[in-house]
């Protein structure tokens, strides 16, 4: 087989005379190709795998693998902004001493929204929301949370 034949062979114009290089001519399409439209696949033909990788049974998929389509960007951005705003409100209410419980609630909701936004799309606003709400929750812990496990004690203290 000369150089010209090799070139034509690589382009698919002619078949190789070398029996080792010949594809089985049983009407099977080449590996990895679909049968032509309107034709039934011959017996024994199998759908080629969509990916070259199939996880073993019981194996967890790669955590970074996209299991679902990404959510709309506007929704994610809205969550991120809401998280940051709630974080600012929580910090202000705690630092100014106005309705600390409101601040705690805002920071919890803001933290969940911030995590949601950060999981869906990494953005600076979402990160800022998570950090602000974490600071607010930390302040709550040291400012208003106290331990009174004895249920009667609160009532006694109040009287």
């Amino acid at each position: 087989m000369n150089e010209n034949d090799s070139q034509q062979l690589s382009q698919g114009n002619i078949q190789s005379s070398d029996p080792e290089q010949q594809q089985p001519s049983q009407g099977y399409p080449p590996v990895g190709q679909q049968p032509p439209a309107g034709q039934q696949p011959p017996p024994g033909w199998q759908q080629p795998p969509a990916q070259g990788y199939q996880p073993y049974a019981g194996q967890q998929p790669n955590p970074g693998y996209p299991l679902q389509p990404p959510p709309p960007e506007n929704k994610t951005r809205g969550s991120a902004i809401a998280s940051m705003v709630l974080g600012i409100i929580a910090l202000l209410s705690l630092l100014l001493g106005i309705y600390p419980l409101l601040g705690l609630l805002c920071s919890v909701v803001g933290l969940v929204l911030g995590i949601n936004a950060r999981e869906n799309q990494r953005s600076g606003v979402a990160t800022a929301g998570v950090v602000l709400n974490l600071i607010a929750i930390s302040l709550c812990a040291i400012a208003i949370v106290a331990c009174v496990t004895c249920t009667g004690c609160i009532i006694t203290m109040a009287r």
């Binding site: 600390p100 419980l101 208003i144 949370v145 106290a146 331990c147 009174v148 496990t149 249920t151 009667g152 609160i154 009532i155 203290m157 109040a158």
Partner: peptide, 28 residues
Amino acid sequence: QALPLVLPLLKQEALSSELLLDILTKGF
């Protein structure tokens, strides 16, 4: 756990906002 102690106060309308804040922020 605190419900049996708080309910009588609710019935007597003796549950002040300060006590409510205590109940919500103290005790886990």
